[in-house]
Design a protein around this nucleic acid. Structure first.
Length: 243
DNA sequence: TCATTAACTGAGG
DNA sequence: CCTCAGTTAATGA
């Protein structure tokens, strides 16, 4: 399989966390990964399933979500290339939420046994995954605060800035703009508001000259007010260069 | 299909 | 009285 392109984002991200050796990288590069393509809005792993593999986002944007009885869906987290959104399925055998694609995506699947063996062989890597999972839960705490307490414009700004900082880590920033290829329906589901209201909030941020969202791309117009509105403190992402 | 906007409504401060 | 947000519906890209 095309090892470089697929594994590059994962390795780059693990590299930024802390000590990973060249040996570790080589080992990860040699892992068998089954690559599959998905359209937008595909359910990759369902709530209640018992997966036997973990999913690496190779390309595209994915999300974890839960759907309530009324049919409304809450997006719990957004995932970008290089991340393994369902790493916890290694230890928590039954899925307690859905993993879906937000955009057409390329996903790589790594069997649980493969990862378990990797953990035993390379405690270094196991530590990185452990650390990664803790950061993941820190991000959930921030997400709860965001959806539960911030006004809608700040919610949107906060999700945007978090996404930007994570895209920065995998080298996907382009000056003052970055990708956010979600539909307004999906943005609403992430923020806990309707698509119509998401549209109003997006428009307000544009009219206020803070940030523009057009065709899946965010362009920052006023960085100072953007940060101020978002109430963003990047400590919870636990990257070395603290924002 | 997705985005945009208006009009109306009600909750809540 | 004002702001926020859901609903509905019409229209545009």
């Amino acid at each position: 399989m095309p090892s470089d392109a697929i594994r590059a984002a994962l390795v780059r991200r693990l590299h930024t966390s802390s000590g990973i050796s060249e040996e570790d990288v080589k080992d990860i590069d040699a892992l068998p990964i089954a690559v599959r393509q998905y359209p937008a809005e595909a359910i990759v792993v369902r709530d209640g399933e018992r997966p036997s593999e973990c999913c690496l986002v190779v390309d595209g944007f994915c999300a974890r979500s839960k759907t309530i009885a009324s049919g409304r869906r809450q997006i719990l987290s957004i995932h970008i290339p290089g991340e393994i959104p369902d790493l916890m399925s290694l230890f928590l055998h039954v899925m307690d939420h859905d993993l879906t694609t937000l955009t057409p995506s390329t996903l790589g699947f790594i069997r649980h046994e493969t990862l378990q063996k990797l953990h035993r062989r390379r405690p270094n890597v196991a530590e990185l995954f452990w650390r990664d999972t803790l950061i993941d839960s820190a991000m959930f705490r921030e997400w709860i605060v965001n959806v539960g307490q911030r006004p809608a414009p700040a919610r949107l700004a906060h999700v945007m800035i978090e996404l930007r900082e994570r895209l920065r880590i995998i080298g996907r920033l382009d000056g003052a703009s970055f990708e956010m290829p979600l539909t307004q329906e999906q943005i609403g589901e992430a923020l806990g508001i309707t698509a119509v209201h998401a549209n109003r909030v997006i428009r307000q941020l544009r009219e206020d000259g803070i940030v523009e969202l057009h065709r899946g791309r965010v362009t920052v117009l006023d960085e100072r007010r953007f940060l101020e509105l978002a109430d963003f403190d990047g400590r919870y992402l636990h990257q070395s260069p603290v924002l």
